[in-house]
C-alpha cells in the first residue's frame, strides 16, 4: 500500500509525474498550494482584480470556484443556462452550482441564453448551421465577457485543466491553426474590450481536479453534455493519456514547453487582428456585425446567410 509522503497515512493518489503520493488530508493542501503557485507565477490575479468564475456545474469550474475562495480570493460566479433540455442537463448543472454558492456564501449570477439571445443554444446552432459546440463556445465567450464588463469584473477565470489544454493544443497542432495557437495561453491580457482571461488549473490533470472536488465533498454534474459525445477533444484526451501512461509527465511537457517557448513567438508573429465595436451590440469583433449578433438575428427570423464569420478569440 502506498503511503502519503507527508504524513504516512494511506495514500489516495500517486502522481507519477511528481513522484508524489498523498493522502486524503494532505492532497487538498498540496492542490491549493499548487493553484496559488500557478496564479503567482503567471501573475493571473492582481490585488485590484475583481474575479468572475465561469461556472458550469462540472467538477472543474466548481473546484476552481471553491479553491479560489479557499485561497482568500473574493470570486463570484456566473452560471449560463444554455437551455440544453436533453436529460435535464442545464437544470441539473444549475442546481449543483447553486449548492456550492450557498456553501461558500458567494454570489452566483445566472444568465439564460434563451433570454439573452431569444433562443437556446441548440436552436442558435441549427439556425446558423454551426456545430452545437461551436455556437455554444461563441455565445459563452460573448456573454461572459459582456456580463463581466457590465458588472465591473476585471478578470474571467475558467476551470480549464491540463487535459483540456493539451487536447486543444494537439488539435490545433494537427491542423497547424496558427491563429489559435498564438492565442493559447494560461493568461490572456485584456485587450480592446475583451477582459483578461485566466486558467488557474492548467497544472492539474482532470483526475487531479476531480479528486480535489470529491475530497472536498462538492457535488457536481457527472453527466456529460449530450453534445460532447464524439467530440474530437475526447479522442485527443484518450490518446494523450495513453502516452502519459507510458511516459509520465509528457502532457505537462507538451503543454508547458509550448506556452513558455512557442506561444510567445507565435503571438508576436501572428498578432490578433484589430478589433472594433460591433455595429449592433458594441462588443469587440473583427467584422461589421459580430458573429453572435448575426446568430441571434438568424435564429429569431430567417435572414440570408452572410459571408465571413468574425469571432472572438478562443
Amino acid at each position: 500500500m502506498k503511503r502519503c509522503l507527508w504524513c504516512k497515512q494511506k495514500a489516495v493518489i500517486y502522481m507519477r509525474e511528481h513522484r508524489l503520493a498523498l493522502c486524503k488530508d494532505c492532497y487538498p493542501k498540496w492542490f491549493l498550494r499548487m493553484t496559488e503557485r500557478v496564479i503567482k507565477e503567471w501573475r493571473m490575479i492582481l490585488p485590484d482584480d475583481k474575479i468572475l468564475v465561469a461556472v458550469s456545474g462540472g467538477k472543474d469550474s466548481l473546484g476552481l470556484w471553491f479553491a479560489l475562495t479557499q485561497l482568500g480570493y473574493e470570486a463570484d460566479g456566473l452560471y449560463l443556462d444554455l437551455g440544453i433540455s436533453a436529460d435535464e442537463y442545464s437544470l441539473r448543472s444549475k442546481r449543483f452550482s447553486q449548492q456550492l454558492a450557498e456553501r461558500i456564501q458567494r454570489t452566483l449570477h445566472i444568465l439564460s441564453v434563451s433570454e439573452e439571445m431569444g433562443k437556446p443554444v441548440p436552436d442558435l446552432a441549427s439556425s446558423s448551421n454551426r456545430e452545437p459546440c461551436s455556437a455554444c463556445g461563441a455565445v459563452k465567450r460573448y456573454l461572459f465577457n459582456k456580463f463581466a464588463l457590465e458588472h465591473g469584473y476585471t478578470v474571467i477565470a475558467t476551470g480549464h485543466n491540463l487535459d483540456d489544454e493539451a487536447a486543444t493544443l494537439m488539435g490545433n497542432v494537427m491542423r497547424w491553426q496558427v491563429g489559435y495557437l498564438a492565442r493559447q495561453s494560461p493568461v490572456l491580457p485584456p485587450k480592446n474590450g475583451l477582459l483578461k482571461r485566466i486558467k488557474p488549473f492548467i497544472r492539474f490533470t482532470e483526475k487531479q481536479v476531480a479528486l480535489f472536488t470529491i475530497l472536498n465533498r462538492i457535488p457536481y454534474i457527472e453527466q456529460e453534455c449530450p453534445y460532447s459525445v464524439g467530440a474530437s477533444s475526447l479522442f485527443y484526451k484518450e490518446l494523450l493519456n495513453r502516452i502519459e501512461e507510458r511516459s509520465p509527465g509528457t502532457k505537462w511537457a507538451f503543454y508547458s514547453q509550448f506556452v513558455e517557448q512557442i506561444q510567445p513567438l507565435l503571438d508576436e508573429k501572428f498578432p490578433e487582428p484589430e478589433l472594433r465595436p460591433c455595429a449592433q451590440c458594441g462588443m469587440p469583433t473583427t467584422v461589421e456585425v459580430c458573429s453572435v449578433c448575426r446568430m441571434k438575428e438568424r435564429a429569431n427570423k430567417l435572414v440570408p446567410q452572410l459571408e465571413g464569420e468574425g469571432s472572438l478569440r478562443e
Binding site: C136, V209, L211, V229, A231, K237
Partner: peptide, 8 residues
C-alpha cells in the same frame, strides 16, 4: 468515476 469530460 470518470474524470474525463468532452466538449469545450
Amino acid at each position: 468515476v470518470s474524470a474525463i469530460s468532452g466538449g469545450m
